[in-house]
């Protein structure tokens, strides 16, 4: 089910893909990407993978902020995803042991996009029973995105442990 108005949309199926599909859309340009998810896996579906997102990040040298939980023993998928972030130059990686929030945000010269919901950026998050609100850069959607960017990059980011800083950054035109 998906209900929509012009500013925000309720998403109840394959929740993270609502954001990922738009982030990867052809021609989409981004200034910043923010991933807040306690758990992350390298693959989310047959077409959506972390590597695909990171390819876009590398292509545009998008400053990317990732806040997640530290890998735990036995969770090799999360550990592999963390390793992928570690090896991507423009990614800043931080760990937060108490993290429960799930937020995806992106902003570019033409638009901003946000997803706030229950789904981790994992295969289960894609296939399980989840719910989310997709926000566009209009009206209340824009207000929420601005406030979430501020919260994620300032309060939450500064209260999370820095694991890897960004070494490369560029704001595309």
């Amino acid at each position: 089910m998906r209900t929509a108005n012009k500013d925000i949309e309720l998403v109840t199926s394959r929740v993270p893909s609502a954001f990922i599909t738009r982030f990867l859309a052809q021609g989409a340009r981004w200034w910043v990407l923010i991933i807040v998810s306690p758990w992350i896996t390298p693959s989310w579906s047959a077409t959506h993978t972390l590597e695909g997102v990171l390819d876009r990040v590398r292509e545009q040298a998008v400053p990317t902020y990732v806040i997640t939980r530290p890998p735990v023993e036995g969770d090799e998928y999360h550990a592999r995803a963390v390793a992928q972030f570690r090896s991507t130059p423009s990614v800043e990686l931080r760990f937060n042991r108490g993290l429960h929030a799930k937020v995806l945000l992106a902003e570019g010269p033409d638009r901003a996009l946000g997803l706030l919901g229950s789904a981790n950026l994992t295969l289960n998050g894609m296939e399980g029973v989840e719910v989310g609100v997709l926000m566009h850069s209009r009206g209340i959607g824009e207000v929420l995105i601005r406030d979430l960017i501020d919260f994620c990059t300032w309060d939450l980011r500064r209260s999370s442990e820095l694991i890897k800083s960004r070494e490369q950054r560029s704001r595309t035109e």
């Binding site: 200034w31 910043v32 400053p63 902020y65 601005r146 406030d147 960017i149 501020d150 990059t153 300032w154 980011r157 950054r169 704001r171």
Partner: peptide
């Protein structure tokens, strides 16, 4: 908020 955005995202 824009100052914080600048400090974080824009440098």
């Amino acid at each position: 908020r824009q100052l914080r955005y600048g400090l974080t995202v824009l440098g």
